[in-house]
């Protein structure tokens, strides 16, 4: 039931998005809002919803595997720009910790929140595991990861336009290291070269954070 409803709501959201072409109407955002409202007014819990919709969630796994195709297709360009991509991803990672987790730490918020906040810009399946490992809150981490993903997917293209950013490399590294797979999916829509860089950036982010998090945990939490 919820499975079919999710597909229908998404199909309608996709149709509206293709007709109107407004960034804030991207289906992952609008469909989610509509489904949340439907679940809440029907008086069901998330568990009820998930039992039925888990098959769609399962497909996320193979879809991530499928990203190896654009990576392969653009391997030469990626290799040429490899060093540049790696260094900017590290900058993005540090910037993310400084503007998020360090602020919480300064206000003496509980350590579990500080650790969770460090993980907000990596893809949810990895972030959840790392949260468990370093003493964050896995469920909360999943939520802030999704929020960061949606934020980039919805307002990223507008930011790029306003700042007049032309380079696919700059757009894609910023998107991949902020909004991981959700932002990557948005970039894929109009530029699959950018999508490949974004894929590489979010992969690198998942490699950088497990190094950075223990370092910051040691310095901040002690």
């Amino acid at each position: 039931m919820w499975l079919i409803l999710t597909l229908i709501v998404f199909a309608v959201a996709q149709y509206v998005y293709l007709r109107k072409k407004r960034n804030y109407l991207i289906p992952v955002f609008t469909a989610t809002v509509v489904l949340i409202i439907l679940v809440l007014i029907s008086g069901k819990t998330y568990a009820d919803y998930y039992v039925s919709a888990q098959w769609i969630d399962w497909l996320l796994g193979p879809a991530v595997v499928a990203l190896s195709f654009p990576l392969y297709k653009h391997r030469k360009m990626l290799a040429q720009n490899g060093l540049k991509i790696v260094s900017w991803v590290v900058i993005a990672a540090i910037l993310g910790v400084l503007t998020g987790a360090v602020v919480l730490w300064a206000f003496q918020v509980d350590n579990s929140y500080v650790v969770s906040a460090m993980l907000k810009n990596i893809t949810a399946p990895v972030a959840i595991d790392l949260a468990e490992f370093y003493g964050g809150i896995p469920a909360l981490t999943a939520v802030i990861c999704t929020m960061s993903g949606m934020l980039g997917a919805v307002i990223g293209p507008t930011i790029f336009k306003k700042l007049n950013i032309k380079s696919s490399l700059a757009k894609a590294v910023a998107m991949g290291s902020t909004s991981h797979a959700i932002g990557t999916a948005r970039l894929m829509e109009d530029d699959d070269y950018a999508g490949a860089i974004s894929t590489l950036s979010f992969l690198l982010m998942t490699l950088v954070m497990p190094v950075l998090v223990p370092l910051f945990v040691y310095v901040l939490v002690g």
Binding site: T6, L35, I36, V39, Y46, Y49, Q54, I56, A142
Partner: peptide
């Protein structure tokens, strides 16, 4: 790909 994110994202209602 965006469709496959919907079920996880709806999970926000748990909090």
């Amino acid at each position: 790909l965006p469709l496959f994110f919907v079920p996880v994202t709806v999970g926000i209602i748990q909090y």
